[in-house]
Design a protein around this nucleic acid. Structure first.
Lengths: 190, 190
DNA sequence: GCCTTTCTTGAGCGTTCGCTCAAGTATATA
DNA sequence: TATATACTTGAGCGAACGCTCAAGAAAGGC
């Protein structure tokens, strides 16, 4: 009996992710979302409930894709080569809304006010770090890196370097490709 | 003939820097500033002109102090030891409003909208990077690091690592001291 | 003590914010 | 075709935003 929505929910979430990713939480107004998603306020709130609820969905999508992408890369190249390739891939990716990590941007913007979305960003970053640690552990088991290293510590450093790289890649005064190459080179010395 | 202001301008700028640093541009309202600086709207606008003008002053103060601090450290320890010490000092500093870099936070928040303050943050970050490059150059001349390295490239990587470290240091799930130690250890292998 | 000059005060401007809701429209079922 | 059940629309709510300005208070120079 009912009527179907004129929009595709998953598409809208992906669109919202890109807008939030680029402009941040406070930098994105409902007017912006209504214009880009082509939804009037009523439809928007019927579909998602609130700006924050949509932001949470967008961030979840972002995090899931990030982990899936890393896993697929490891499937293709093996764990160490995947970790080495990722910095270059991020810098070279031209279709991203922005180079900086959406999770770190969210965390940096909202943590001081104790916003709930900052906590969710933190959770997603931990999942990503765990994914990195798994890859380091697998590389270690495969004998690709020395047994004296702690995979969790390597993962924390790697994630930190990646966050810095992605921030740097936003700047036109920085040669991000060089930094990416140097991060990858460091992994070969482990 | 005139009447003196009841406030100290430099103190207010330092206070504003800490508030902006912690909460960001959109995250800080005039109400917040009026409350913390104990200034009514009229006095505020007579003194600083606008929220953005005060933000620019705050960021300038932040950047000047950053370079001065690095220079003083190099004076005490020499260039390489200063670069090695800085990561640990940032992580251990307990009096900072927040660990993340104010310039990178500003840039990440406002760059996508083309805000003028993002451009100013960019300029200050370039100055900081130039300061790092100088120290690497001096370390190289002193024979502390190999002649095959490019000081500018080292500076870009170092700044990127530092930005990542400072973002990571905001998170309670990360052992930032370990990352800081690893960054310093990398400098010894140059 | 008076006058001039500046600083301080706070009510309130116009705008934008996230969001609500009642009325209208389209569609799957009976 | 009639009806029930969504979805769509857009005017507009109360609150918060950055900011203005006229009136009052304080302090140096004479």
């Amino acid at each position: 009996m009912p009527r179907k929505p004129a929009y595709n929910r998953d598409t809208l979430i992906a669109q919202a992710r890109d807008i939030f990713w680029r402009h941040g939480w406070a930098g994105t107004s409902l007017k912006d979302l209504e214009r880009e998603l082509k939804l009037k306020p009523g439809s928007f709130y019927a579909a998602f409930g609130s700006k924050d609820a949509l932001y949470a969905l967008a961030m979840e999508r972002y995090a899931q894709d990030g982990v899936a992408n890393m896993m697929a890369l490891a499937q293709d190249l093996g764990p160490l080569e995947a970790l080495k390739a990722q910095p270059r891939l991020v810098v070279e990716a031209s279709e991203l809304p922005t180079k900086a990590c959406m999770l770190s941007k969210t965390y940096a913007e909202l943590q001081a006010r104790g916003h709930e979305l900052a906590g969710q960003a933190r959770t997603h970053m931990i999942a990503m770090k765990t994914c990195f640690a798994d890859l380091f552990r697998r590389a270690q088991k495969a004998g690709e890196i020395g047994a004296e290293h702690d995979p969790v510590r390597l993962a924390a450093r790697y994630q930190s370097d990646l966050l810095g790289l992605r921030l740097s890649a936003e700047r036109d005064d920085v040669n991000a490709a060089e930094i990416a190459a140097d991060i990858a080179a460091d992994l070969d010395r482990l």
